[in-house]
Nucleic acid binder design. Structure first.
Lengths: 215, 215
DNA sequence: CTCCATCAGTACCGTACGGTACGGTTCGCC
DNA sequence: GGCGAACCGTACCGTACGGTACTGATGGAG
């Protein structure tokens, strides 16, 4: 980090050059296509038309490459904030349903599944920080969005809950149930993807039945 | 299966001898302690005081060993059936809370986490049947227990739901939320384990608020 | 033009693992 | 007692991968 960074960086202040971003993109593609077994340093170098030496110079070692992949993928996700505009019951429900659909679509995405599988596979190793990293960049982010939404709903007198964390946990559980695990285990998600909309609405209705303020 | 099996088998008619069961036990221990990286054929042979040749004779190859481990572990879990005795609101709630606590304890168990991590790590491989196997032996089993319990509750007029699968999904989601994933990612479950009881009760109360029959 | 930094491509090394083969031993059966 | 099956321990082989070193090409700075 000494001196002026002359190479062009990616949009986010991630310290990555365009080239390095392209390499991570190829690495993610390899991971999605063939799982962790396919993610070899030689394979990444070949797919990205770069040398292994450059990989080690840029990312340190294989773990550094994996961490960079997670950070890079997370940097592409942007969480839109909910405007604290006038919120009525219908619009709160609409926001919640939109959140639920987004959540399901993110969790069912190829890259998300591959990265979660990768981090879970490494979780047994003691020093592996991949799980923590994924949790920080993934769950915390989407959790904050949901938390903000719930807070706005409570401020508007539409929701009633004591512990926001508990309310968020209930919402998450009602929306996702065990689908995430089943997809991680390899179950074909095509049957699920059709029903995202209906599933999200049902879950939100149940959530509102639990935490919606009875008028 | 030709002729009479002379060697003593394990209790379940799994076709495994005691010796093979002991070997699988050691293999599970290795997996729990060190993750998949520690689960090498040589390591299992050393830990179980058997030869690699015997491993390959008994289980075919490494995948066969992994499948046998999952089947063996599943065979140790016995699902107790709910007697269809007279069920009132309090006893239904008690049964549901017991189920929820069991579910949390199973999912948080060392062996369960290790096997789920293993199957998830292999899920990217095309031909891997481990995920399906784990789903069949694990989820389906506990799902049937829950389904039976819910059905009894409905028959007794204490629960009202249309689709049993949906009701079970809601119960599962309320109980587990994202805790399973977080534990799979390596989060320390010690903080969670203290609150199993309270968590189970809260989840069951929410479930009953949704699906309990208002009298 | 010259110098220097960067990087692609490749060759190389050590290691670790899956799977196989073999010698020696135990144990049940005839 | 002798035979044969099962099996332990170990040595062995091929392969694949992580990581390093080297060579040559490119391109920008002075």
């Amino acid at each position: 980090m000494q001196g002026v960074q002359t190479a062009k960086e990616t949009g986010a202040g991630s310290g990555l050059t365009e080239r390095q971003g392209a390499v991570l993109e190829q690495a993610l593609r390899l991971l999605v296509d063939g799982g962790e077994r396919a993610l070899t340093t030689a394979g990444v170098a070949r797919a990205a038309n770069c040398s292994k030496e450059s990989l080690y110079k840029w990312f340190g070692d294989r773990d550094g490459l994996l961490s960079a992949m997670i950070a890079y993928q997370a940097s592409k996700v942007r969480t839109l904030d909910v405007s604290a505009e006038a919120l009525d019951e219908a619009s709160l429900r609409a926001h919640l349903v939109a959140f639920a659909k987004d959540l399901l679509e993110v969790l069912a995405g190829d890259v998300s599944l591959a990265l979660n599988r990768l981090a879970i596979g490494q979780a047994s190793r003691e020093g592996s920080k991949l799980g923590r990293l994924l949790e920080e960049r993934g769950r915390r982010q989407i959790g904050r969005r949901a938390g903000a939404l719930l807070e706005v709903g409570r401020k508007a007198g539409l929701l009633a809950f004591g512990d926001p964390e508990e309310a968020y946990g209930a919402l998450y559980g009602l929306v996702v149930s065990d689908w995430h695990l089943r997809m991680l285990l390899g179950e074909d998600p095509s049957g699920l993807k059709k029903n995202f909309g209906r599933r999200a609405e049902r879950a939100v209705d149940a959530f509102l039945a639990l935490y919606g303020r009875k008028e």
